[in-house]
């Protein structure tokens, strides 16, 4: 199972990449493998301000719709519009072209509280 060392993780199986005051969020390789066949991604609205844990996006497989929660408080600044044409990028490149949205952080320190790769590996066994 691919769990890159440079990312942070949540128990909801999202990954977080910190870059200055902004984070990029997607779902982990483990999550995409569990879901399989992503056929639709509902992106959050740009400019929306959210608290950590708010459901902001939806990833849908043939069988089920799964909420994606914003892992840290902040403002949505971008959604990955490539997913509208090709939602399967979430399956084929979960840590790259399959990213879902970007958040401008309210508090950069919030990222430190998230799991690192080894803690996440422990979670998924």
């Amino acid at each position: 199972m691919n769990v890159p060392d440079h990312l942070r993780y949540t128990s909801d199986h999202e990954w977080i990449l910190l870059d200055g005051d902004t984070v990029t969020v997607g779902i982990t390789d483990h999550a995409q493998e569990e879901l399989t066949d992503v056929v639709f991604v509902e992106l959050p609205e740009n400019g929306r301000t959210c608290d950590a844990g708010d459901p902001v996006a939806v990833v849908e497989s043939v069988k089920a719709a799964s909420d994606i929660y914003i892992p840290v408080a902040g403002e949505i600044v971008e959604g990955n519009i490539d997913l509208e044409a090709d939602p399967s990028l979430v399956n084929t490149d979960p840590y790259g072209a399959g990213w879902i949205f970007k958040v401008r952080l309210k508090d950069a320190a919030a990222v430190d509280a998230l799991m690192d790769a080894s803690a996440y590996k422990g979670l998924i066994g």
Binding site: S11, D12, H13, E14, I27, A31, E34, L35, V59, A64, S66, D67, I68, Y69
Partner: peptide, 8 residues
């Protein structure tokens, strides 16, 4: 995600 991944 957790809701769909944890199965009863």
């Amino acid at each position: 995600m957790s809701r769909s991944l944890s199965r009863v």
